[in-house]
């Protein structure tokens, strides 16, 4: 089976500003792929080109075997197979959740069941509620419902949890993990490192229009092999040691402390530490 997304040498400039400066990207079927990067890194431009919202200057792009720049009937057939959850939409407040999802179902050849989708995003209780009465998190769930109603083979999720409280984010992540079971490929863009870590099979870090690295969250930036900090409470208070072999150190410690090593922690660089280093301290906070 061929790749879901295949990008070679993608470039796009706005005037003198080169927003995307030669990107290569391959995303395989069934993957949750996260695109990480600070504002202005070229993340949004790249995704919008893949979504068919924007033209490109140069490069080969194939999404589900189709050039996203197609027009007319071909574009409709292509859009019938993808789902897009945009950053923020604020509309149609006078319709109910059910009415809105049922309406969007009419756009697709093979829609999922309306009730099933509303249930999947956890809005069953709000099915008859008008959209303007929904909370921010519930609205976001509705956005996802509209993104998946057409049974997409590929789903774009653009910063899905911006503005969520921690609990709502966890709940939302569970929803995305459920979606993966349906077999859809998901391209996620996010500001949040923990989000990428919780959801993504692979992460690409993009900065200044280029992809710096593509790896699993665990391996990104040589994270797995970076020095670990082992700390514990010794006779003279808290002690710590940086080592490339924490297991050996702990083995040694277990000989000293027969029972429990007091206040033992092993800390590797967090994804955030690695990421900040990679993008050279650019703004990540939004």
């Amino acid at each position: 089976m061929s790749s879901v997304i295949n990008v070679r040498g993608l470039e796009k400039s706005y005037g003198a500003n080169k927003a995307v400066a030669g990107i290569d990207l391959t995303i395989e079927p069934g993957e949750i792929f996260a695109l990480l990067g600070p504002n202005g890194a070229g993340k949004t431009t790249t995704v919008e080109i893949l979504e068919g919202f924007r033209d490109r200057d140069r490069g080969d792009v194939s999404v589900l075997g189709t050039d996203p720049g197609v027009k007319g009937e071909q574009a409709r057939k292509w859009r019938n197979r993808i789902g897009i959850v945009l950053q923020s939409t604020n509309d149609a407040g006078d319709l109910s959740v059910y009415e809105t999802v049922a309406h969007f179902a009419k756009y697709y050849s093979n829609p999922r069941g309306v009730d099933e989708v509303i249930d999947a995003v956890g809005l069953t209780d709000k099915s008859t509620a008008l959209i303007r009465t929904l909370s921010g998190g519930q609205r976001r769930r509705l956005d996802v419902a509209l993104g998946i109603i057409g049974s997409p083979e590929l789903l774009f999720l653009d910063e899905p949890t911006t503005g969520f409280d921690p609990e709502a984010r966890r709940a939302f992540w569970a929803l995305i993990q459920d979606l993966r079971k349906s077999g859809a490929t998901i391209l996620l863009t996010t500001h949040y490192l923990d989000e990428a870590e919780a959801l993504a099979d692979r992460v690409a870090v993009i900065n200044q229009g280029k992809i710096i690295e593509v790896a699993t969250p665990a391996l990104l930036g040589g994270r797995a092999t970076s020095l670990a900090t082992v700390s514990w409470k010794g006779p003279n208070g808290l002690q710590s040691e940086r080592t490339d072999n924490p297991t050996a150190l702990i083995r040694k410690l277990t000989e000293t402390y027969k029972d429990e090593i007091p206040e033992l922690t092993v800390k590797r660089a967090s994804l955030e530490d690695i990421y900040l280093e990679m993008i050279g301290g650019a703004d990540v906070s939004q």
Binding site: G52, F53, R76, R79, I84, L86, Y107, Y108
Partner: peptide, 17 residues
């Protein structure tokens, strides 16, 4: 107004012509 609200962009992303 619909353009500002993102209604149109959302529609553009669907098979609706």
């Amino acid at each position: 107004v619909e353009r500002d609200f993102g209604t149109l962009k959302r529609l553009q992303g669907t098979p609706m012509p």
